[in-house]
Amino acid sequence: MNISDLGDIKLHYREDGDPNGAPIVFANSLGTDLRLWDKVVHLLPAGLRIIRYDKRGHGLSDCPPGPYSMGTLVRDTEKLLDQLNVKGAVFVGLSIGGMIAQGLAVKRLDQVRALVLSNTAAKIGQPEMWQDRIAATRQNGIEALADATMERWFSRPFRESNELTAWRNMMVRQPIEGYIGCCAAISGTDFYTPTSGLRLPVLGIAGSEDGSTPPDLVRETVDLVPGSKFHLIRKAGHLPCVERPEEYATALTGFLRDIRHI
Rank of each mutant, 00 (worst) to 15 (best):
S208E: 10
Q174T: 15
A22H: 14
L104F: 00
D210F: 14
P45Q: 12
T253V: 08
Q139W: 05
P23K: 07
E128W: 01
K123M: 15
L81H: 10
D62M: 12
R133I: 08
H58D: 03
P215N: 11
E160D: 14
K87D: 00
T193Q: 06
H58T: 13
H238S: 02
S196I: 13
R234Y: 01
R199W: 09
R156Q: 09
N119R: 01
F91Y: 07
A144M: 09
M1W: 11
R219K: 12
N2G: 07
L145G: 14
E15V: 11
L224R: 05
R133L: 10
T189Q: 06
V218R: 04
T213N: 14
L203Y: 10
K55N: 07
D54W: 05
S4I: 14
V218A: 13
R159G: 03
C241M: 15
M171I: 12
V25R: 07
M1D: 08
D132V: 07
E220D: 12
C182A: 11
R168N: 01
L239P: 03
Y68C: 04
A206C: 09
I262Q: 06
T120E: 05
A114G: 11
I142S: 14
G188I: 06
I205V: 15
Q174P: 13
E177V: 03
F255A: 03
V112W: 00
R52E: 08
E128L: 08
S4Q: 13
D190T: 03
D8A: 11
R199M: 10
E163K: 02
A122G: 12
R173K: 14
R52G: 04
H261I: 09
R152N: 02
A185D: 05
M1S: 09
T149C: 03
G141K: 14
M129C: 00
C63Y: 13
A144K: 11
E151P: 00
R52H: 03
S208W: 02
N28Y: 00
G71T: 06
A148M: 04
F230P: 04
D38I: 05
V116P: 09
M170N: 12
G178D: 13
F26M: 10
A136T: 12
R133N: 02
S69F: 01
K10W: 04
R35S: 10
L217A: 13
T165N: 03
L217Y: 08
R133K: 13
H231A: 00
L117N: 01
R133V: 05
Y248F: 15
A122S: 11
P201I: 08
M1N: 07
E209N: 12
L80A: 09
A166P: 00
A135E: 13
G71I: 02
R113P: 05
F91P: 11
I259S: 07
M171E: 00
K39A: 11
T221I: 07
S196Q: 11
S118P: 08
F255T: 02
D62H: 12
R156K: 10
Y192S: 07
D132I: 10
G227P: 09
D8M: 04
F158T: 02
P157T: 03
H58W: 02
P64W: 15
P194R: 03
L84E: 10
